[in-house]
Simulated assay, not measured.
Amino acid sequence: MRRPLHRRPAAAAAVLAALLVLTACSSEGTGDAPKAAGPTPTRSAAVPDRQAEAAESAGPSASASASASKGPVVPDAQLKPVTGSFTEKEKKYLSGRVPVNTDPAAVLQTGQESCQRIERTAKRDKDAAIGAIVAGDIPDAEAVITHLCPAQQPLLAAASTGFGEGTVEAPKAGSYRALTTNPACAWQALGADGKVLASGPAPGAQGPVRANVPAGTKEFTSSACYAWVPA
């Protein structure tokens, strides 16, 4: 007597399930990690950042290397690029600024990029360039300009007469203007007894902000004003 045909598919399914279980167990035993669905993105796929690349080639932070190093530095006699040579002005700029185990050419490049930034900014807006120097946005600007782009000395001279926002002790009396259009810029001048001698704009200030610093001012404080220069 023949068995019913409808039982055969069920038996076949059971055998197939058993085979799948055995296959899964054997694959777990190999210890192979599952493969990624697609290729892993590499850093080269990112947008190039030349300044970041210069910092990496310098070892320590390139921005930190731009200023005179506080740790061990490469002796002046050993300040030599891999190829070519440094000019006398470049050597003077690098003196005391190249940490040990750092490529001096990378430190020089950082300074040169600062010069380029100053020059580009000054072409568009001299006040913006002066403000960046006053506010410290250009690291070690005095050395950078003096040794690497002396043509920008007038900007450095103008910046030397100003000061940044925050608290300034005993500022020179006179009229100053803020190098910003921020309507939140506010200031006040305090006397030796802590009394307010003068104060100015915000809220809702419009146009350039000016401050008249009276004689005898002990402290001048400001916020959201970026930088000040004589008016």
Rank of each mutant, 00 (worst) to 15 (best):
A77E: 12
A77W: 00
Q78G: 04
L79T: 05
K80T: 15
P81H: 03
P81A: 02
P81M: 01
T83N: 09
G84R: 04
G84N: 06
G84L: 04
G84Q: 06
S85T: 11
S85D: 10
S85N: 04
F86S: 02
F86K: 01
F86N: 05
F86G: 02
T87A: 05
T87Q: 07
E88A: 11
E88N: 05
E88C: 00
K89L: 01
K89T: 13
K89Y: 00
E90M: 09
E90C: 01
E90S: 01
E90A: 02
K91A: 04
K92I: 00
K92D: 14
Y93R: 07
Y93H: 03
Y93K: 02
Y93I: 08
G96W: 11
G96N: 01
R97L: 01
R97I: 03
V98G: 02
V98E: 07
V98W: 01
V98S: 06
V98I: 07
V98P: 04
P99A: 08
V100I: 11
V100E: 14
V100R: 13
V100M: 10
N101T: 10
N101G: 00
T102K: 08
T102A: 13
T102L: 06
T102M: 07
T102V: 09
D103V: 08
D103I: 06
D103N: 13
P104I: 09
P104A: 08
A105D: 08
A105C: 01
A105S: 15
L108Y: 05
L108M: 05
L108A: 09
L108R: 05
Q109V: 07
Q109K: 13
T110N: 05
T110G: 06
G111I: 11
G111A: 10
G111L: 11
G111C: 07
Q112V: 14
E113R: 14
E113T: 13
S114M: 14
S114N: 14
C115Q: 10
C115P: 11
C115G: 12
Q116Y: 07
Q116I: 08
R117M: 12
I118T: 10
I118G: 08
E119W: 06
R120Y: 12
R120W: 07
T121V: 15
T121A: 13
